[in-house]
Amino acid sequence: MDKWIALVKANMKHPKVTQTELAERLGMTQGGVGHWLAKRRVPSVADMNRVLAELGLGYLEVSLQIRERSAEGPDTTSHYNPYFRYPVSDWSGLCEAREERASYGAPRFELTDYHARGEAFWLPVTGDAMTAPSGLSISAGMMILVDPAITAEPGKLVVARWADSPQATFRQLLKESGQLYLVPLNPTYPKLLLTDDCRILGVVVQATAKF
């Protein structure tokens, strides 16, 4: 709930949208919106998503995480915590601007508590180019969450694609002697110079593994 409120308030500032204006768009009273943002009342998941859509965040979706009850019984101190879900993409033919493409089969989504700045998407990690012998290591089978709206700075993990290749690349962006390189975490792979014909599609903001 706290993260949803923070996201809504941040996007009401730029451009400025008052509670009254938002309430009119939703077909409800200003007081009702105020109760939600002050945590006096908890909106339904459907209402949370209606608010996001009215603020131009329709590419985000709030979902509930369902988990097994603990052996000690229900946790009466826990709070309602919304989760966001983002689509799972594949590496082949990954679109830079996430434009609409023909759908082949039902879309797949994964949940996270991260609320993205842009139209984020998940990618399954393949190969061992980002598997390091020590320190930061992201192995095959893990899922990475990519946010296109995050600024790609040296040190960040990024997904990039060359203009002449439909296959995207997952590497760490590093700066050496004034040049930017895409560097694997696995030292047995070569680093690649970031040239003008290579576009960074987004910054990796989360990596998860499922068991």
Rank of each mutant, 00 (worst) to 15 (best):
L193Q: 10
P15V: 01
L145I: 14
T77S: 10
E119H: 12
W4A: 01
S139E: 15
G202P: 07
K13Q: 14
F211D: 11
H115R: 07
N81W: 03
R161Y: 06
Q172C: 12
G34H: 01
F84M: 10
H115M: 10
A163K: 13
I66T: 14
H35R: 12
T151I: 10
A53Y: 06
E21A: 15
R108H: 12
S177L: 09
L94P: 09
K156R: 15
I138S: 00
A10Y: 01
A163T: 13
V62A: 15
C198M: 14
W36R: 00
K156N: 15
F170Q: 06
A149C: 09
L111C: 04
R85E: 04
G56H: 12
T131R: 14
F170P: 06
K13T: 13
N186D: 04
T195D: 13
P74C: 06
L193I: 11
P124V: 04
Y83N: 04
L193K: 12
G178D: 01
S89P: 01
P154K: 09
P87S: 07
V205D: 06
V51F: 08
I138C: 00
K39W: 03
K156I: 05
K9I: 00
V203S: 03
G93F: 10
M48F: 07
D2I: 10
T29G: 00
D196S: 15
S44V: 01
P166Y: 10
M143Q: 09
K3L: 10
A152Y: 03
K175A: 15
Y80P: 02
G135D: 10
P15I: 01
S89I: 01
G56S: 11
V203I: 06
A106G: 02
A152L: 11
T18D: 00
G135K: 04
G105C: 09
L180G: 01
L194I: 07
A149R: 09
